[in-house]
């Protein structure tokens, strides 16, 4: 029973090697919107499974070091792998996996369910938005790969802005909520373990830099494309704005926990 619980939870709220199943599930979802929905719903289901079964507290007491090592290894592995891709959709999946795996650092802590759900959402929402933008990019250019044409800042300025901001939101940039979620994860660790989590932060900085370099800079060589509509841009911008505002108000709540 325990083993099945571990596998199911690890596939929904990813840790390696079951993070592979999580990514497979996202890839198999039909279309960008379904992927976006999946990246929000699946981790919540995994979290609920852990909380309702009571495993959340038991695991935290029985194997805190193993869980900590597992979570950090998954986060580092997927952050590193994200640097090796130039596809927005794959990048979004890897970053989501890297961020969501940090939830396992908090196993056994924080009695309020809603706080944990917010922590997971902090990583899911930017990933979901990124998967939607990857879908839009695929629709406009035929693929979400940035390595061939590049220089989208001039031909798809609105979409480029949204992708850039979402990428920053996905990599724990202040004042988005996952910056504060990362502070919360830091707070849960003994000092000696903190450098590993900071390695994740460094790798995220590297991956987001590479993504933006591929996305924004250079001369566009592809066919003529249509940018995102003004309404779509406002909607995307508004979502990110609200996300950032939540960050400001929610941020720092770990200080009083």
């Amino acid at each position: 029973m325990d083993i099945i619980l571990w596998i199911v939870a690890g596939s929904l709220l990813p840790w390696f090697p079951f993070s592979w199943i999580f990514n497979r599930l996202l890839v198999s979802a039909p279309g960008a919107w379904a992927r976006a929905l999946a990246v929000i719903v699946l981790p919540q289901l995994g979290l609920l499974l852990l909380l309702k079964s009571g495993a959340w507290y038991v695991l935290g007491q029985e194997m805190p070091i193993a869980l900590r090592a597992l979570a950090l290894f998954t986060a580092i592995l997927y952050a590193y792998r994200a640097a090796g891709t130039r596809d927005v959709q794959i990048w979004a999946r890897f970053m989501a996996t890297s961020g969501l795996s940090l939830t396992w650092l908090l196993v056994g802590l924080l009695p309020q369910h809603w706080d944990m759900q917010l922590f997971v959402l902090a990583w899911s929402i930017p990933a979901a938005l990124m998967l939607i933008w990857a879908g839009v990019l695929t629709k406009q250019t035929g693929a979400s790969y940035l390595g061939l044409s590049g220089g989208f800042a001039r031909v798809l300025p609105r979409l480029s802005v949204l992708i850039s901001l979402t990428a920053l939101a996905a990599t724990a940039t202040p004042i988005f909520p996952n910056f504060f979620a990362l502070l919360q994860a830091m707070e849960s660790l003994p000092i000696i373990w903190m450098p590993l989590l900071l390695l994740v932060l460094l790798l995220w900085g590297w991956t987001v830099g590479r993504l933006l370099q591929d996305l924004l800079f250079g001369i566009y060589h592809g066919e003529a494309v249509h940018d995102l509509s003004v309404a779509g841009t406002w909607l995307g911008g508004l979502t990110l704005g609200v996300f950032a505002l939540v960050g400001i108000f929610w941020g720092g709540i770990w200080i009083i926990n």
Partner: peptide, 19 residues
Amino acid sequence: TNRPAAGRYAFWTQITYRA
């Protein structure tokens, strides 16, 4: 954004700052 060199060196700055 037309100049790839601008992006490259901005990235160097960004990653050093992150370090």
